[in-house]
Amino acid sequence: MSRWGLVIDLDRCTGCQACVVACKHENNLPFSTPETADVGRLMTWIQLVAADLPGRPMPSSLPLMCQQCDRPPCTDVCPTSATYLNPEGIVAQIYPRCIGCRYCTNACPYAVKIFNWTEPEWPESMAGMRNPDVSARPKGVVEKCTFCHHRLIAARERARVAGRELAPEDYVPACVQICPAEAMTFGDLSDPHSDVAALASGPRAFRWMEELGTQPKVVYLREGE
């Protein structure tokens, strides 16, 4: 069984936010306005946050998304099992089950679970640009990064039709695919020969807020020598 993980090399990352736009378009995240942004309701599954990291002279830019924890605090508090850890290590979100209690948004120490305060809306002319592989989430539910799980389903189907096993390059989330600085590496952490497993166990690897014991599968590589 695969155990999907993401490594972000902060030494390579320039903070350009190409990943933010890739995620927005891929996952049909509606646009905000100055008013919604002002009250902290930007709909972004990845956001750039300023982080004080050891050894750095000034705050670093950290691309932060759902950390896909192996011990996710959000799933423990969900009263309807709308969010759960699936067998491949992805913290999944079943929107029809979500009752919008927001226990999970409070429990998540990374503040990356987002509540839909309004119905997602696009101007009429933009309705066509939505990705048909991803359903829009209604008002009143919580959403978050899924490692572009729909891409995994599609890749697995393509591999099945072709009569072969899923290859590592078959499944890549949109943010990883676009990153101009080649700072993101995605793959199967349980495969000891994968790039992602090698990087995640390297000397520069660390997990954000790892002292909380959430055991994230998003691993950062620190900047500097």
């Binding site: 936010q17 190409a18 736009v21 890739a22 378009h25 640009m129 048909p132 695919q177 676009i178």
Partner: peptide, 25 residues
């Protein structure tokens, strides 16, 4: 529905910046 970099282009090599993707908008 989505814009990515052309993997064969020697400039982009399959990658793209935020502005390039926003051409969809």
């Amino acid at each position: 529905v989505k814009i990515d970099g052309n993997p064969l282009c020697p400039i982009a090599r399959g990658r793209l910046c935020a502005k390039g993707q926003a051409a969809l908008e």
